[in-house]
Design a protein around this nucleic acid. Sequence first.
DNA 1: CACTAGGGAA
DNA 2: GCAAATCCCTAGTG
Length: 573
Amino acid sequence: MMNKGPCLVRRDRTVLLDCGHPEFEAARERLPVFAELVKSPALYHTYRITPLSLWNAAALGASPEEITECLERFSGRGLPSGLAEEIRLLMSRYGRLALHSADEGERLLLRADSEELLNEPEVGTTAAACGYLRTGQLEMAGSAARRGMLKQELARAGYPVLDSAGYHKGEALDIRWQDGDRSFELRDYQREAAERFRAFGASGIVVLPCGAGKTLVGLAALEASKCETLILTSNATSVRQWTEELKLRTHLPPESVGEYTGERRQVRPVTVATYQMLTHRASKGDGFKHMGLLGERNWGLIVYDEVHLLPAPVFRATAEIQATLRLGLTATLVREDGREGDVFSLIGPKIYDCPWKTLEDRGWIAAVECLEIPVPMEPEVKRRYLHGTAKEKFRLASANPAKAEMTVRIIKAHEGASILVIGQYLDQLAELAAITGAPVITGKTPQQARMKLYSEFNEGVLPVLIVSKVANFAVNLPDASVAIEVSGAFGSRQEEAQRLGRVLRPKRGDNRAFFYTLVTEDSREQEFALRRRLFLTEQGYEYTVMRGFGDESGTRAEEPGGENPHSKEAFGS
DNA sequence: CACTAGGGAA
DNA sequence: GCAAATCCCTAGTG
């Protein structure tokens, strides 16, 4: 089909990548810089170049020429007519409109680099709808209060705005690293990310994999900004982690660090709160009781941890406080609700990301082998499957009882390793527990019982632990060297990334880990399984399909010391 | 007053 | 387009 390069570039800004081509790897590394992976069946990956993916590339300093050259090289031929021009046009929009401050910050000026740009109906009417009026050939002016709204609406209309309106100072805070701890140093990529934030002198998002130490990047941002800071994160455990890191790594006195949660309401120079705290309301029609926290002190910086989880009301509130410096942290900038554009406009562009494989090459995270194990249905299950509705089909395939036996085989093959079994349905997990004898942790498991199981698992006393969706949230869940995914949500890319993250911590010895995903053969589960792994595929993870796992018996890896290399023979083929 | 169970929200 | 988990608040209990 393709005679030259690995890519077929189409006029609609999609790119087909041939997975069998010798230059596949090279192309796979370059494409994510400016395109998003949307489909990845076995033979061809489909990428899409969107305005947003181009703007993020532009924010990171890429030029349209580089992108066009890259596409030409990988397609081995010229691009469809007009495509290069379109890429140049879309990308050039980033930076052509800029916001500046005037009148001591009361009003803002929207400046364009050409008169035609302001004359574009999309630009003029959108800005006018935000209350911005023409004040000159190249200029419109309006209220600073509409700063977020203006950026959001213009970006939606296809015209991103470079925000150079600056930030208010915020209350100064004397924050320095705890220098008693000589062993502690930022890793090169953490320093680079923090440096980028400082160099930008503006808001933005840092993307790093699970376990790569995003918290430290956040602390470095605090240290660089030296102002009172509000940190927003996803859950109570994470709040606790932030406050502990703050006390451990910086010389801030404990009374300067506060937690604002259901348990305690401390508003201190550095305050950590949950998103749910901010968005809580007594009942549907009521107002948000705690959104006032955003203006409670003179915050100079707001850190949005797990920014991909940012709820809609916090978006709205964030639109109103655009004069406060913002740092977003996340492992996966993808959202399942399609609001990536609002993250871009209201928090900021991506200012740093590091491909997972790069961290793997440098040994900061484990090298994970991803294996897909097809599991057939027993005739009785198959019969019920064929008669079910679409929804029942997914449920039946996900909870396929034959997965239990397969799970047991995989556990056997990895004797001596720490193994997490992760699933979505409580009854399925209970059944697995009955068969394997391993304990289950679900949302109902009290915190104390969780801690006890965690530490047993950590010490290696407990080899197998079965976990429900708690694995998606629990930041303190111990690391494992093998994860077995037995079922998952409707194609959630984030969930897959989070679960893989459970085995990413570097391993002693050869630094290898295993991620198994059990998928029922000839079922609806397959399509969702493919969707789930899009983000990881984009990051360069390949899932090897392995049929009839463990059929040839007698191959078992055993090693003293717990961390065995899970001998290759056991995974032949 | 401290603690827990249960409801509502997203 | 589903099930499960989370968090916050309140009412009930001892």
